[in-house]
């Protein structure tokens, strides 16, 4: 049986209902919420602020410290709180995806702290987290060249699909599932983050890149609208 229709009835290039909002954490310098359907992420940005311990300071530029955390209640089986191998890796990858658009030269010796919390997980949590963090950085008044948008492109059996759910990640018929999270910059469409979990043929990969560009265009529109004061919640309809 081939994968003809998506499990939740979406089009192959359709995103889940999006939720986006800024200013969800009043005590942070900048904050945002971003959700793909049942995947909900919030991000808070603090700083630039003095960095301690001193040996971590870079006298030429500020640094970005990014933490990703899945909350214990975000998944069906309680997740043990605190950092683990997976969350450390995603924190690093998300920080790298964001730091290439941020101007860190303005405040040498300082740190910008980014906290990404996953409130509810249903695949693509790192993409939702990066989207929220990009909005939070902008909201915190950080000088940035451009925005970034993130989306997971998958190959389920032989179909290229956008924004995977947990059920699709576990679809093991035919060619099986492949998950490729992309992060693209808003103006130049350059890739600042790419991971690949699964297998994909070389000629199908360029298709995936095109799909990512299309999907990120849509996500950027949501991010822009949310930053301009709109509270977006497509689940309410």
């Amino acid at each position: 049986m081939t994968y003809k229709k998506r499990l939740d009835g979406r089009e192959f290039d359709e995103l889940r209902p999006i939720k986006a909002e800024i200013g969800v954490i009043p005590n942070a310098d900048g904050s945002a919420l971003f959700a793909f359907g049942k995947t909900v992420a919030i991000a808070a940005v603090y700083g630039p602020k003095p960095l301690h311990p001193q040996h971590m300071q870079d006298p030429e530029r500020g640094i970005i410290r990014c933490n990703y955390n899945m909350l214990p209640f975000s998944v069906t089986e309680r997740a043990r709180p605190g950092p683990n191998r997976r969350s450390k890796e995603i924190g690093m990858v998300a920080g790298n995806a964001l730091s290439s658009v941020v101007d860190l030269s303005r405040f040498p010796g300082t740190v910008i702290d980014i906290e990404i919390l996953i409130l509810q997980a249903n695949a693509s949590t790192r993409c939702a987290g990066i989207n929220a963090a990009a909005m939070a950085l902008a909201h915190a008044g950080i000088v940035m060249k451009e925005m970034v948008s993130s989306v997971s492109i998958g190959k389920i059996d032989d179909k290229i699909v956008a924004d995977l759910t947990k059920e699709e990640e576990d679809y093991h018929e035919g060619e099986g599932p492949t998950d490729i999270p992309f992060t693209l910059t808003s103006r130049t469409k350059q890739i600042t983050h790419l991971q690949l979990d699964g297998k994909i043929q070389t000629h199908r990969f360029s298709e995936a890149v095109e799909a990512a560009k299309k999907a990120c265009e849509k996500i950027l529109d949501y991010q822009t609208r949310a930053l301009k004061g709109e509270k977006i919640d497509e689940n309410e309809k």
Binding site: V101, A138, V143, M144, K145, E146, M147, T185, S186, R187, Q223, T224, L227, K228, G229
Partner: peptide
Amino acid sequence: ERKLVIPGE
């Protein structure tokens, strides 16, 4: 008139 803009706009 002042327009609210985001980075990269």
